[in-house]
Design a protein around this nucleic acid. Structure first.
Length: 280
DNA sequence: ACGCCCGCCTGTAAGC
DNA sequence: TGCTTACAGGCGGGCG
């Protein structure tokens, strides 16, 4: 499932691949993907003829800035992929829902079997108005918005939530999903159900450091691709970080730190993997 | 305020 | 072998 490291990997590649390109045509092959818009026609009309100027990221959202101030927002959901097709004649993968054709330089394709992903265009901000009101609910970005651990402690203490639920709450911190929440909590040595207002200063520092370092290392490794997952980068390549996983999808295997057995429980309907010995 | 569940989806895999 | 069920989970909404 694409989380912050996977989205950031795609963002960096998009920067060299599509910035400066002009959109000639947009084909919507599955209207559900552009469900925020009144119609596929409306979505197309806002993009055609415009040039991609910048690529940013907010949590798990990709922000493709256009020269007129609009932003094409992409969320990959569970199974979304962006594919760079240099040649428009290359056969389209099944579940290709949106195809953006550039005036020169091929296509950008959105493929998404489970259709949880979406694309929408956010209007250019009016004078004095904030950009991207659709994403105003997002909390801080763990890689972009650096903060002191003391500030992080204040944020944690203001909540009385289980740590995993809090890490996955996009209004608290943006970009962490089920997989990286488990990896971060393993690295921090903290259980998923520890309450956020129960941490010592040492534990707060460990958690902040684990969050930043785990995500940064996963970006370096171009994200995680598991056997039953869909994640592929812009060029169809898998990531390398799955080899570094300490907890996620390792039920019954030996903890790489203490050799105890990694256990799996359900929490909030989601699978949670942890070491009952290392994580307290 | 918080935990938990559902519905939205499809592909894969386990179970009977 | 073949059908049915479970599971994967991001997100928004609802409920207790």
């Amino acid at each position: 499932m694409p989380e912050l490291p996977e989205v950031e990997t795609i963002r960096r590649d998009l920067q060299s691949e599509v910035v400066g390109r002009k959109i000639k045509t947009v084909e919507v092959r599955n209207g559900r993907t552009v469900r925020r818009h009144q119609s596929a026609k409306h979505f197309r009309a806002r993009l055609e003829g415009h040039t991609l100027k910048s690529i940013d990221r907010a949590g798990k959202y990709l922000l493709l800035g256009l020269e007129d101030g609009q932003t094409l927002v992409v969320h990959l959901g569970m199974s979304g992929q962006l594919q760079r097709a240099k040649n428009v004649k290359v056969a389209k993968a099944p579940h290709t829902h949106v195809v953006i054709t550039f005036t020169q330089g091929g296509q950008l394709r959105f493929v998404d079997p489970r259709t949880f992903g979406e694309l929408f265009v956010s209007a250019a901000p009016e004078d004095g108005q904030p950009a991207l009101p659709e994403l105003s609910h997002l909390g801080f970005d763990p890689l972009e918005d650096v903060m002191s651990w003391e500030k992080f402690w204040v944020l944690l203490a203001a909540r009385k939530s289980g740590l995993k639920a809090l890490l996955m709450d996009q209004e608290f911190v943006a970009g962490i999903g089920n997989l990286y929440a488990d990896e971060i909590l393993f690295a921090a040595g903290l259980r998923y159900d520890r309450l956020s207002n129960s941490l010592s200063s040492q534990e707060v520092r460990r958690l902040y450091r684990a969050m930043v370092e785990t995500l940064a290392e996963a970006v370096k490794r171009r994200g995680s691709s598991l056997a039953d997952e869909q994640y592929r980068d812009l060029f169809g390549e898998v990531g390398d970080y799955q080899d570094q996983h300490q907890a996620y999808d390792r039920e019954g295997q030996a903890c790489r730190r203490c050799r105890a057995t990694i256990v799996k429980v359900k929490s909030g309907g989601r699978s949670t993997y942890f070491c009952d010995h290392c994580q307290v």
